[in-house]
Design a protein around this nucleic acid. Structure first.
Length: 699
RNA sequence: GGCGCGGUAGCUCAGGUGGUUAGAGCGUUGGAUUCAUAACCCAAAGGUCGGGGGUUCAACUCCCCCCCGCGCUACCA
């Protein structure tokens, strides 16, 4: 494996349009934080950068809805997220934001550097334009009916109901969210990044270069993207809010958010180290790691690397440990439905219990598949693992030490094997040391390879072994007859507690601090650093060392607390934390007035369906043969999810007979079947009250 | 629809170049114990390894088909 001199760790820039929830934390920030804490303990040169992603149309849209400027809008969520991260103890070296001047400069410099090499393509295309507002509508400003699921509130870039990515032109009945008007198509110029030109290079770098060290989910998706052929991607938008395109002929244009956001990692580093940032992004012996969620894989593994490559002399990610998603109580986490556990609310409702959430989220970390957070599980994990195994072990060692040795570390005199009991104590000690050393090695091995769930499990093993050691040696039974044996046992047990206090730092920083306080071991901190290299049980507490007072590390989580949280989830509307709600759009606004002449242009008729079959490779389209009275023709209709071919045959339909033919999926459709769309997106065929003859006209 | 990843004990997950009784933690049940936050320790019960075919002396592990979940991506006059 390549030897690196330093490491740059990034965690996905959270989008500044809502508060953070546990899904964000489990997906990227907690694993990243655990990893970084580990690296620091090892004495590595590492920086941990993150910040708010504050551009893009969702922000402008959200701001408009709240009736504030984008700046005020992002300030609010940036501060909320920054505070929540800090309160939770995510140990960023810097938490920046993409509205900072240094980010504007950096992003523009990237653009210029690539532009000057003549890499970008320029293309004029038609885009939706709101004539009333005199504004090109970015994808998010357009709402319409999702062609995939029929949801009437789908955005121009994505339907939030079914999750399908869309382009505005695919929307049925598009309308501007700014004015409610139907937008028109208008020409505008944009710059494109020719991803396709990097295909060969990506193939070599990803497919051949990272087959073995990237997670299968990451590798698999990259591979499929590359092999399907890459397309140029537009990198500019007509918008006011964002990083202006640094060209004289680009008035009113900004960089598209996906282009500017990942550059935010670099600008954050610049802000952190104005003089020394470059080596963290350009030195070949720097290791770059991106922690992200699975929805971000192609951006971090294909698009951003290609941009870095185009800009020249930047390093590329060495690994991108993307996590899957976290569900909540069996359901997807949803901001708009307020089905979420918000980080700031957790911190408020569970004061002093940061470690508990860290522990829980790491132990169910969605590393290989989607995971499910349940409150019952949370309670169980805290009570039967943190309290009963770790907390209890530390506590009983402390209590025993005070009881038998007045809070002083007993001397571990070499114990001759003069009795059966002593022999068994030696055996237990040998076995425990060995198991602890094994677990430490496995823990570190897992940390190195981003398997944090496993790493934390191995860490917990230290306490399991400790508990068993006490049960095997039973110091409380030796107290009277063999004080030396008790000293031997407790000395070791205390060293194990010390070891736990060190080994747990990447996972449970608060508890580890508490352990070191109880051991009164602050002065031994420096000496413990070697642990991460030696990978074996510590032996640092000197005989006679005065211990602090025992204190419980964790308390049981009571049922009441859990049921309160469950209640909260059941009443979504009540506790909504200033989330951008998208609740209109159940009924569409009235369209502009038309004249009778406009209407008369349409030839609307009754037809009879003679034939109906599914279109191959389409889950939306039915291919209908319709008798219109004057002819028989093929009409494709997007109703396959609402009607089966069988129930269509023989049916009366209403159609527009003089609509210009249009090819779909390789077949020409000669007309359009009329349907009524209900607010929930269901389609219903329009039919006359009684069977009308085919060919009847409608007026 | 295409592509990617996943579907193993009640829960969270390991595992396997195909080969004796499929593992761990937690939960459950029983026992032992009292230093400890009714904690710890020991033991047991619990699985037709998503479904169906196939290859093989032998499949949970390989092949094919299907179903379910999530992500990416498309058609929708």
């Amino acid at each position: 494996m390549k030897k690196f001199a330093r490491t740059t760790v990034t965690a996905a820039l959270p989008y500044a349009n809502g508060p953070l929830h546990i899904g964000h934390i489990a997906g990227a920030y907690l694993p990243a934080d655990t990893y970084v804490r580990y690296m620091r303990l090892k004495g590595e040169d590492v920086i941990f950068v993150c910040g708010s992603d504050e551009h893009g149309v969702a922000i402008t849209l959200g701001a408009k809805k709240e009736g504030v400027s984008p700046k005020i809008f992002v300030d609010k969520y940036h501060n909320l997220m920054k505070q929540a991260f800090q309160d939770f103890g995510i140990s960023f070296d810097i938490y920046s934001r993409t509205s900072n001047p240094v980010h504007y400069e950096t992003a523009q410099e990237f653009f210029r550097t690539i532009y000057d090499q003549g890499i970008f393509l320029e293309e004029v295309s038609d885009q939706y334009y709101d004539e009333q507002e005199k504004l090109f509508l970015a994808d998010r400003y357009i709402i319409g009916t999702c062609p995939n699921c029929g949801h009437t509130g789908a955005y121009g870039d994505q339907c939030e109901k079914c999750g399908t990515s869309l382009s505005p032109k695919q929307l049925i009945n598009p309308r501007s969210t700014v004015s409610g008007q139907t937008p028109v198509l208008k020409l505008t110029k944009h710059w494109y990044f020719p991803l396709d030109k990097y295909e060969g290079w990506l193939r070599e770098w990803v497919i051949e270069g990272h087959q073995d060290d990237w997670k299968v989910n990451v590798y698999g998706q990259c591979k499929s993207w590359i092999e399907q052929g890459l397309q140029p991607r537009s990198i500019t938008r007509d918008l006011e809010w964002g990083v202006p395109v640094p060209l004289s002929d680009a008035q009113g244009k900004v960089l598209y958010v996906w282009f500017d956001a990942p550059i935010g990692y670099i600008s954050a580093t610049k802000e952190l180290l104005p003089e020394g940032w470059e080596k963290y992004w350009k030195a070949p012996d720097t290791r770059l790691i991106h922690f992200i969620g699975k929805d971000n894989i192609v951006f971090h593994c294909i698009i951003f690397p290609a941009i870095l490559k185009a800009a020249g002399d930047y390093i590329l990610p060495d690994n991108v440990p993307a996590n899957e998603f976290l569900n909540l109580e069996g359901d997807k986490i949803s901001t708009s439905r307020n089905h979420a556990v918000w980080l700031h609310e957790y911190l408020h409702d569970f004061p002093g219990r940061r470690d508990e959430l860290r522990y829980m989220l790491t132990s169910i970390s969605p590393e290989t598949k989607d995971a499910d957070f349940t409150w019952k599980d949370y309670q169980q994990k805290v009570n039967s693992e943190l309290v009963a195994i770790l907390g209890n072990f530390v506590n009983r060692v402390m209590v025993l030490s005070w009881k038998y040795f007045e809070g002083k570390v007993p001397a571990a005199a070499s114990l001759d094997e003069t009795s059966e009991k002593r022999k068994s104590i030696h055996a237990a000690h040998g076995k425990a040391s060995e198991e602890i050393n094994t677990s430490i090695r496995e823990m570190i091995d897992a940390l190195e390879t981003f398997r944090f769930r496993e790493a934390q499990f191995q860490f917990m093993n230290l306490s399991r072994v400790g508990n068993k050691f006490l049960a095997d040696t039973e110091p409380w039974k030796q107290a009277k007859e063999d004080p030396e044996a008790v000293a031997f046992i407790l000395n070791f047990a205390l060293q194990v507690v010390m070891t736990i206090g060190e080994a747990g730092k990447p996972f449970l920083p608060d508890a580890c601090q508490a352990i070191q306080k109880q051991l009164n071991a602050a002065s031994l901190e420096q000496a413990s650093v070697g642990f991460w290299k030696d990978k074996s049980v510590l032996n640092l507490l000197p005989a006679g060392h005065a211990l602090g007072q025992p204190e419980l590390l964790y308390r049981n989580v009571e049922d009441e607390l859990i049921s309160k949280q469950m209640e909260k989830l059941k009443k979504p509307e009540q506790t909504s934390p200033a989330v951008v709600e998208e609740s209109q759009a159940t009924l569409k606004p009235l369209k502009p007035t038309v004249t009778i002449d406009d209407f008369a242009k349409l030839d609307i008729r009754i037809g009879k369906v003679l034939h109906a079959e599914r279109m191959e490779k389409s889950n939306k389209l039915l291919k209908l043969t319709v008798d219109t009275g004057i002819d028989q023709r093929i009409i494709l209709s997007g109703i396959a999810q609402h009607y089966t071919p069988e129930e269509m045959i023989g049916r009366e339909v209403t159609l527009i007979a003089n609509l210009a033919p249009r090819k779909m999926m390789g077949i020409e459709s000669q007309g359009m079947i009329l349907t009524a769309e209900e607010p929930d997106g269901k389609l219903k065929l329009l039919q006359t009250a009684s069977d009308a003859k085919a060919g009847s006209t409608i007026s």
